[in-house]
Amino acid sequence: MTDKPMSNRPMQKFHGSCHCGAVQFEIETDFPELTQCDCSICRRKNALMVKVHESKFRLLAGEDSLTEYQFHTRTAHHFFCKVCGIYPFHRKRIAPDHFGVNVFCLENFDPTGIAVRQAVGAAMT
């Protein structure tokens, strides 16, 4: 038995980017759930995220346009575009082989109907 939400949606590829288009990426997911975290940085950036295994994430362009921010335990790696400032994704603290991808950076994606889990990041030590 698994504690992971199951999705009845098919695996799909989505193209994503920052606002200015310098950072381009592609993900493949079935969107089992979306997460909204209450840690200090996530509250401020107000992103809605999907967890994607690193094998299902591909950076297409803009590696040199990314800047990284770390805080607290310096385990998670939050990436922002140096040009427009948008947060497209981060490498997760608890699951470092996964990315948290900001679904608002995905082209033609509508989050309607996908369960949103409230992640308790503020209480992590």
Rank of each mutant, 00 (worst) to 15 (best):
A122H: 06
A47S: 15
P32R: 11
E33C: 13
A22L: 11
T2E: 09
V50P: 01
E68W: 00
S65I: 04
R117E: 10
V116Y: 06
Q118K: 10
P32G: 08
S17M: 07
T35M: 00
S55M: 12
L60S: 05
K45H: 15
V101C: 03
M6H: 08
G21C: 11
E63G: 12
V116D: 08
R91P: 00
N46G: 15
P88V: 00
F25L: 02
V120K: 13
K13Y: 08
F31V: 01
K4Q: 02
E28C: 09
R117S: 12
Y87P: 02
G100S: 13
Q36A: 02
K56F: 13
S65M: 08
H53K: 15
A122F: 03
F79E: 07
E26L: 05
T35F: 00
K82P: 07
A115M: 09
C105H: 01
R43E: 15
I27M: 07
F31D: 09
D64Q: 15
E54W: 09
D97C: 12
P32K: 06
H98G: 10
D64N: 14
F99Q: 13
F79Y: 14
E107L: 04
A122I: 07
R44G: 11
F109C: 01
V23K: 00
E28K: 12
T67Q: 11
K82W: 06
H98Q: 15
E63Y: 07
F79P: 03
G85L: 11
G113L: 03
A115Y: 05
V120P: 03
T29H: 04
C42M: 15
N108V: 05
V120Q: 10
K82G: 10
G100V: 08
D110R: 02
R93C: 02
A76S: 14
V52G: 12
H90N: 07
R43F: 12
D38I: 08
H53L: 09
V101T: 09
A22V: 10
R93I: 07
H77F: 02
M124P: 01
R58H: 04
F31I: 06
Q12N: 07
Q118R: 13
M11K: 03
M49I: 08
M49L: 14
N46E: 15
A47I: 13
Q36H: 05
F99Y: 15
M1G: 13
E63C: 03
T35L: 01
K92H: 09
C84Y: 12
N8P: 00
V103G: 00
A76T: 03
A123F: 01
V52L: 12
G21T: 09
Q24Y: 00
H98E: 14
H78A: 03
E63V: 02
T2N: 06
G113N: 10
S55K: 14
Q24R: 06
I114Y: 03
M1P: 08
H78S: 06
C20Q: 11
E54M: 11
L66K: 04
T35K: 00
D38S: 05
G62W: 03
Y87V: 00
F99C: 13
F89A: 00
R74Q: 14
P10K: 07
E33P: 00
R117Y: 09
F80T: 09
P111D: 12
Y69K: 06
L34G: 03
H98L: 13
G85T: 09
S40I: 05
R58S: 03
R9M: 03
V52T: 11
P111L: 13
D110V: 04
M6V: 02
